[in-house]
Amino acid sequence: MEAVVNTAEELVEIVLPGKVEPDGLEIRRGQVPAPGPGQVLVEMEATGVSFAEQQMRRGRYYDQPPFPFVPGYDLVGTVRATGAGVPADLTGARVAALVKVGAWASHVLVDAADAVPVPDGIDPSDAETLVLNGVTAWQMLHRRARVRAGQTVLVHGANGGVGSILVQLARAAGAHVIGTASARHHEALREQGVTPVDHRAGNVAARVRALAPAGVDAVFDHVGGPGVVDSWKLLAPGGTLVSYGTASTRDAEGSARLPVLKLLGRLWLWNALPNRRSACFFNVWAGRALSGNRFRARLRADLAALFAALGRGDVTPRIAARYPLADVAEALRLAESGTVAGKVLLTP
């Protein structure tokens, strides 16, 4: 039997109408939608402000939809109704989902197959930090670089949403971690066992080389641009460069796709050279269209591993700030300021 939607509730969603400043985001209100066959209606409890949305508002995310649309890459919430073909006993369950767009809303329609159960006792805000950012960190560390105990890794942006989880997972795996961040975050990184390097002081590559004269076993680089060459050169024999963004071009003009294509070409060329190092580009969404079931199985397994790591204390959620959905402009400005540690969240 299908659950009934409470028609007294109101849908509130944030619309990105075009290339606008944060204040240009629009609040749209309407009727809460009913789930269709195979869908669940999720009442959002927490969603995140990621770097993807920062690029999207500039029209610079590689494959974003045409304007206008509702941003929001991931969410955690409670199932309020189920569509045909979905067990009604899912109603009331807390779930997490990667949706790429659409999560900046009070209620979100999600394919039931994409809804991942969140264990009892985990705060929805804490769980939210592990969905997009945590899965990205986990898959880069364990599925791409396959980091092992005793190895040394370099994490750029070690205080950021992904970086703050990545350094914790790497330390839990027994790796030595060098992390770039501005000086204000260095003490917190040291407390986590991370060796900090000030990315604003210049000569980052030389200072990392001084810390790891033989090179590092993995570099996690979200910056892209010319600096990715230094990331490649810092690898030890057998090392892996995992590139997962082009943050250096966030405010650039011109084609949004060209920086990504240039980066992919550079990585392909390095892999074609006769050497003992490897490079890859990571996109957490990649492969969903071609292998949806495999994508879902991997997401469920990796989120389960992250929730277990949270339970063990291997990961502590880093929440920079929480804002109500209506204050999305202020939340986005803070996320873009480059001053925060961890993730900025939106709540109902």
Rank of each mutant, 00 (worst) to 15 (best):
L169H: 03
L169K: 04
D198A: 14
I165M: 11
Q192A: 08
R200N: 11
D198R: 09
A181L: 08
Q168W: 07
G174S: 13
V167L: 04
G202P: 06
E187D: 15
H156W: 09
E187H: 13
E187A: 15
A170G: 06
R171L: 10
R171M: 11
A158G: 14
A183I: 08
R184V: 03
V194M: 02
G202R: 08
H156F: 04
A175P: 11
L154K: 08
R171Q: 13
I165F: 06
L166Q: 00
G202D: 07
V155C: 00
A170D: 08
A173H: 08
A183H: 03
A158R: 01
H186R: 08
A172D: 15
H199Y: 12
H176S: 10
H186F: 06
A181H: 12
G160Q: 14
H185P: 04
T180S: 06
H156V: 00
G179N: 00
A170Q: 09
T195V: 13
V162I: 07
L166A: 00
N159S: 15
P196Y: 07
S182Q: 08
G157L: 04
N159D: 13
A158C: 07
L166Y: 00
V162H: 06
A188V: 05
N159H: 12
V153Y: 03
L169N: 01
A158K: 01
A201H: 05
I165V: 15
A172S: 15
R207L: 02
I165S: 15
A183K: 09
R200C: 03
T195H: 06
H186E: 10
T195A: 11
T195P: 03
S164N: 11
L189S: 07
H199V: 10
E187N: 13
S164K: 11
V153T: 03
R207P: 02
